[in-house]
């Protein structure tokens, strides 16, 4: 997956707001950022750059789902 992990999150929501494709959301219980829709990540690194504590790790690969006849 493109956006790989979030560790050491302080729950400031900067990444959530800055992700253009709405990949990250705040977990209502832990109050921390959570990768919810990784398949929509465009690997642009905005979230990582906006994070004040460098909690986000992103890798360049993307597993593109296979093509099927309906879905």
């Amino acid at each position: 997956m493109p956006i790989k992990s979030i560790n050491g999150c302080i729950g400031c929501e900067e990444c959530i707001k800055s992700c253009p494709t709405d990949v990250i959301r705040l977990n209502p219980d832990s109050k921390k950022a959570e990768i919810l829709y990784p398949e929509d990540c465009q690997i642009c690194h905005l979230c990582r750059m906006y994070c004040p504590v460098d909690a986000i790790v992103i890798t360049p690969d993307k597993s593109i789902p296979v093509i099927v006849s309906w879905g």
Partner: peptide, 15 residues
């Protein structure tokens, strides 16, 4: 290689 990686494709330009 890794064509979907916008950030990587642009070197460090986004920074």
């Amino acid at each position: 290689e890794n064509p979907a990686a916008c950030y990587d494709g642009w070197g460090d330009m986004f920074e």
